[in-house]
Design a protein around this nucleic acid. Structure first.
Lengths: 170, 170
DNA sequence: CGGAGATCGTTGCGCGCGCAACGGAGTCCT
DNA sequence: AGGACTCCGTTGCGCGCGCAACGATCTCCG
């Protein structure tokens, strides 16, 4: 009974898969701890990064939810927290009375810059600096053959709010 | 001002890092959905797998917490859920009146076998089958150069319960 | 033996987040 | 104009999980 699609993972496959999980878990935990020193979660960080990169440093919540791995409701509450801490402000969106614009404050800019240095250093220590140029490039090529879908199944154009959902990679 | 340790991530580094995050997020979401069809979370699955592999298919909760990415309190509640669904039983641990043994029931065994097929197929589709043997081996070698620490900083032998914590990779 | 300290499982609390549903507002089509 | 969809941000609810603290128990050592 030669090859054909197996129904078990080979030891090599299993070992690689486990190394993948292990590496991700360890790195993320460390990065999370690092950001905690700046009083930020990883999601906070992602959102603030989107804001610094945005034109005029302002974005609609729904755009944030598309750019980051969070639903609209998650964004609502996260932004509320950032606002309480004075890192962002919410102003009514010009030309759309439903929505608002989330804008980065000076304090927010300072915070994300400081956190960004920490975060960048962490990624280098835990990830980038451990791989040489060739390894890095091969890793990228390999990873890009794995799934990178933004969300679950696409949405049929049904009724109300239903839809493919917000969470896409960050 | 030639090389020296930079303070920014190069575009190549950033792209690889992002591919890493993206791949992990997409794959995990899919695997989670697959397991939901068996009414299990990823943590449920991990715990059940530990049990099938254990001698006599029974383990102490504290051993589960060491084997899996969960604290003792997480294990308590997760096992309570599994017990409610009849997948495990808890019996007093012989020789240690503090603790118990979590044992897999027939239903639990059946469930983990079915879920295991689904899960294995998912990992193959999303991960293993997308890489050829050489790629897989190189990926494993690369990933094993990244952190794989079980927990945060090691614990000084202080007082009471404090300690490096339970969560180790799963 | 007895006491100090460590370990086990549990529990109260809080956080982060998704899902579903809502009212208000925009858009499109007749 | 007006009705039907669609989209926006918010909110109530529930889940999963860590942290810290507790009582019960085990262990080690004088």
């Amino acid at each position: 009974m030669p090859p054909g699609p197996r129904h078990t993972l080979s030891p090599a496959e299993l070992a690689t898969w486990e190394a993948f999980l292990r590496a991700h878990a360890s790195i993320m935990r460390r990065l999370e701890q690092d950001l905690a020193a700046h009083d930020l979660t990883l999601s906070d960080y992602d959102v603030l990064v989107q804001l610094v990169q945005a034109p005029d440093r302002r974005l609609r919540p729904v755009e944030l939810s598309r750019a980051v791995l969070l639903t609209r409701s998650g964004i609502t509450r996260l932004v509320a927290g950032l606002e309480r801490h004075g890192l962002v402000e919410r102003i009514p969106a010009p030309g759309d009375r439903r929505g608002q614009l989330v804008t980065l404050t000076a304090a927010g800019l300072e915070r994300i810059r400081a956190a960004g240095r920490t975060h960048g250093r962490g990624i280098r220590e835990l990830f980038a600096d451990r791989l040489d140029a060739g390894e890095l490039e091969r890793l990228r090529a390999t990873l890009e053959r794995l799934p990178a879908d933004p969300a679950g199944s696409p949405a049929p154009a049904t009724g109300g709010d239903l839809g493919g959902g917000a969470p896409g990679p960050g």
